[in-house]
Design a protein around this nucleic acid. Sequence first.
DNA 1: TAGTGGTCTAGACCACCAT
DNA 2: TGGTGGTCTAGACCACTAT
Lengths: 274, 274
Amino acid sequence: MPRPDRTNPPVDEPRLETGRPDFGLSRLQLDAYSGEQLYRQLYRMLRAAILSGDLAEGEAIPSENQLRDQFGIARTTVRNAMSLLVSEGLVQQVRGRGTIVSHRPISHSIWNFGSFTELARRQGQRPVTRVLEHQVEHGELHLVRARGLANGEAVTWLNMDTSWLSLELYPGLERYDFAEQSLYETLRRDYGRHPMRSELLLTVVPPSERLRDVFAGAHVPGYLCASGDVLDGDDRLVERTSIVYSPAVQMKFATRWGRSTAQLPSGRDAGEQT
Amino acid sequence: MPRPDRTNPPVDEPRLETGRPDFGLSRLQLDAYSGEQLYRQLYRMLRAAILSGDLAEGEAIPSENQLRDQFGIARTTVRNAMSLLVSEGLVQQVRGRGTIVSHRPISHSIWNFGSFTELARRQGQRPVTRVLEHQVEHGELHLVRARGLANGEAVTWLNMDTSWLSLELYPGLERYDFAEQSLYETLRRDYGRHPMRSELLLTVVPPSERLRDVFAGAHVPGYLCASGDVLDGDDRLVERTSIVYSPAVQMKFATRWGRSTAQLPSGRDAGEQT
DNA sequence: TAGTGGTCTAGACCACCAT
DNA sequence: TGGTGGTCTAGACCACTAT
């Protein structure tokens, strides 16, 4: 993918000599011609060392300059690897002190209820779906899925998504396995229904046992829940849905008060915030 | 904090000339001596343009090289700014194509985040405000108001609105009585500050005694709360706020999945709902 | 004071995309 | 083909921390 040069090793210039002072991940090398980016190789290497416990929580990993020297790469490249670890919460950087293994839980900010897979992609993480319920009731498929991000073995569950889908509209839909494929992709591909917009109502739901179980949450008074209809371009109902968000999701949104406010006559308080 | 040099402007070398071809965020400049990192300044600038709607969903923002040239900074610095936007999910980078705004606009389709008095007027009811707290702390006016609608003698309280307002910005503001007059109207009329947009974070707050008291509510697990910043047209802070909503308020909003999603590369399910 | 991470510069080559 | 973002180099100065 990236760093395209040296996909074919030039003849001279070994480029990556090793043999400098060792620490933890000593004898390892980076392969400049493997096709995998250098920073990704380094990232995987450090990550493995952390997850395997070779680098314990609270310990400092080798400094950026050490890694630069050991592997003969630029510090920028080292920092690219570091930033992946940081964004995964595996590590914390403190100026003057070093880079410390931390396993800190990270929060995921979502602007305006954006896409789930988009969130995943952004952090270079793999979206994961677990089907909690899958049953037919009153001619509808009732589908409950937990959705989250995979970091290696660990999964951070971000929401629990309940869908009601008309089997009259989608005959045979109950035979799909939505742990493996996207619901919306299926509706588009096999049923020609294109989700376009939604009308949602925000509520607070109390922490049920299942929710606490899925989110492995601390004690929260309740969870944010958005429920309502998903419609297609012709305003036909695609599904009814109800999405409960983990506290790990930061639900952000922006509002604008039209330019109008300044221009309104008199003292009408059109721009007044609720 | 970081980038320590040039906290004192050296005499020569203006360093940041502007005047190159314009686009969107034209006349803006970075200040190398402000104490704020260059990449952070650029980040805030782009972020504001996105959240304010000046850069619409699906639109490309200026390319990295354009920004480098326009602001006379290194591309690394531009990329630092970009990576913040990416990690916030406000933007998506596609090699060969550009950097695309991927934030979903709900600003105008939100129903109940709009004006309080407008809501009241629409229903032919009289808005009522009760001031619960009004005190000066650390150079800020701390204002807590309950707001509701009057039906004859009865009042239905709809939200509890906490504001922090800088008295440096608004000298003398502590002498107003905001049970009688609108806060925003005062800010506009007497201080020339025009609230324009807000950036809010949705959370669930547990039912405190005061909240139960104000909302005279049944037993709810928690209340919806939106807290964040209110900004004016120039992205200057107007107030920090935190609004707790009564369960009697139906928080509805609408989302749209832009056409853009369908055109994104590969089989990634960009249109997937969260 | 020596070492750390934070910021920044000024280049470079590349894969990918639109044209 | 020209422009985009992705990767990489080889420097630099700084604030901060630990000693």
